[in-house]
Design a protein around this nucleic acid. Sequence first.
DNA 1: GAATTATGTAGTACCCTGGA
DNA 2: TCCAGGGTACTACATAATTC
Length: 304
Amino acid sequence: LIRQVASVNPLLPAIAAAKFDGYWFGMDQAEVATDLLFKSRADLERIHQDLVHAAITGFGATDVMRFLGQKPHHLFTGEVVIDSKKRPEGCRIKFRIRRNSVKLYDHLNVLRIETTLNNPAEFKILTSSENAEGQVVCRWSPMRKGVSNFWRYAEVAHGANSRLIDALANAPLKGQAIEAIDRLCRSQSKAGRHVAAFNPVTAENVALFTSLLAGEFAINGFRNRDLQGKLYSAPANNPAEIKRRTHRTSRLIAKLRGHGLIAKVTNSRLYRVTQNGVKAMWAAVRCRRIDFPAAFNMSESFAQ
DNA sequence: GAATTATGTAGTACCCTGGA
DNA sequence: TCCAGGGTACTACATAATTC
């Protein structure tokens, strides 16, 4: 970089003679893209609308924070934005936290996932320094704009791209949606026991499905009490109510298991959403939010 | 009125934790 | 590592409510 500067700036010797330290190289903005190449534009278009719908309807603020490596925190005061734009060359969806973003757009037969970092200080980098005793101490510090942090920019951005791609990989495709919803609407029989049918487009069920599909349950799964936290806006205020909620949630879990939407983790009371569950619940969420996008609030109905 | 679904109660299995 | 106790979650059954 110094050699490049010398070739374009004839005043460099004068700057050095004036006792200035020379150049400090920094990155004002960094963009790291991951391209998914399809055999043809037609191949990409076959699933593109499904991916766009999944990105718009299925992801929330906590998902965006997860993509960009941020832990959701109740003291977080920044703005989280999801927006989409249609352009002649394709559709662009952007997930943004303050000045950093990850976006998804298509061009010809390429689906590109691109992370843009304008404010590296929101990420950490491992730095080392000497303390008063002369010992080298390592610690995680806010990342700065110097070019020496190039590797960490790439690491952070590749991580964001990968998390968005992984999340989109679970997006159900339209062809499978009708069959999945049909199955939800029918009562099931599992191990000789009757399991009631779901109405997959009620506000309560869609809110339940949205909670289950949220990123926070994806890693560690969820328990009865975790689900209660999603179903009820306020904590129970007496033992009878606590028991009633536990039982009601337990029955709900049994119903979800009966339909194969979730599965129990062996030797624990944890549950995870199954692949079939992702397909069926995504289909229901999309149907409700796009075709019947009425406002809903499950907390109120469950709190009664 | 039958079938289906939701809810309450009681009993039980089993997970978690602390102590030995 | 094992064990006991407490707490949590699950299941079975009965009954009420809802739907067709």
